[in-house]
């Protein structure tokens, strides 16, 4: 074999395949240069091994132990903080301003388009109720018209945290959205004006209803229409309870 200095290194380190030893040893016996390399590398290895090891400061081990102990402590304050965040999110999710803002945004989104993005076109409340109920949404008694606005259709709309049934009422340039809102909504008594719209949340027969319009009179007309049928306004229930 010809000289292969890297293989000589592996030989010195005992890292050569067993089958290659006889061949390499025969070569070393015949090649003074490779023999010298092997000898020098053994010498170097021995000297490196004999070097006094660098000594860490006396504090290193204590520092390492302390950093390991700090870990669980970090978790003990992180856990309540994470739980707090989750609770805050759950609380925010059901908060009226958050829900009202989302409904207002969806009202603008649907009525802002050139053509209403309805999944169902109908002015018949019974037919609209049937369509939503066959898809798992319970629908209270809803008006056919109020304040001069008429039912035209509806669709399901995705909000940030839930999906709502969105019913359209319209008369020319005047609009109102009636939303059936599943999931938690707290403190429905407040009237809010997110994004410049008038928003009213009511409890109607166990369902949370959201009314959204650019004009206050339509919201009021629908609130009256709903509460004179089967409805009760939680606002009033709250007031009576107090």
């Amino acid at each position: 074999m010809s000289c292969d200095p890297e293989r000589v290194t592996a030989y010195v380190d005992g890292a050569l395949d067993a089958a290659r030893y006889p061949e390499l040893e025969a070569h070393l016996a015949a090649c003074p240069e490779c023999r010298a390399q092997a000898e020098a590398e053994r010498e170097l290895r021995a000297r490196l091994k004999a070097l006094p090891p660098p000594t860490p400061s006396a504090e290193l081990e204590a520092r390492v132990r302390a950093s390991l102990r700090r870990r669980p402590r970090a978790a003990t304050w992180l856990l309540p903080m994470a739980a707090g965040l989750v609770a805050l999110l759950a609380w925010a999710r059901g908060a009226t301003p958050f829900v009202a803002w989302q409904l207002s945004r969806d009202h603008d989104h649907c009525f802002g388009q050139r053509r209403l993005p309805a999944q169902l076109w109908s002015g018949n409340p019974a037919r609209v109720a049937e369509w939503f109920e066959s898809r798992g949404t319970s629908v209270p008694v809803i008006p056919e018209a109020a304040g001069g606005l008429e039912l035209v259709g509806g669709r399901y709309c995705p909000l940030l945290d839930r999906r709502v049934a969105h019913l359209y009422y319209s008369n020319g340039d005047h609009h109102l959205s009636l939303f059936l809102v599943p999931g938690p909504v707290r403190d429905v008594s407040r009237e809010t004006r997110p994004r410049g719209n008038f928003v009213r949340l009511l409890r109607v027969g166990g369902t949370t209803v959201g009314l959204v319009s650019e004009e206050e009179e339509y919201v009021e007309a629908f609130r009256r229409a709903l509460s004179t049928t089967v409805a009760w306004d939680l606002d009033r229930v709250d007031r009576v309870a107090r």
């Binding site: 090891p53 660098p54 000594t55 860490p56 400061s57 290193l60 081990e61 520092r63 132990r65």
Partner: peptide, 22 residues
């Protein structure tokens, strides 16, 4: 943990300074 000094030895040779090695 018993290998702390051995690791420090390698770390010191890698970084060539005690502070970085620790």
């Amino acid at each position: 943990l018993p290998h702390l000094k051995a690791l420090y030895g390698t770390a010191y040779r890698m970084t060539r300074n005690a502070h970085d090695a620790e």
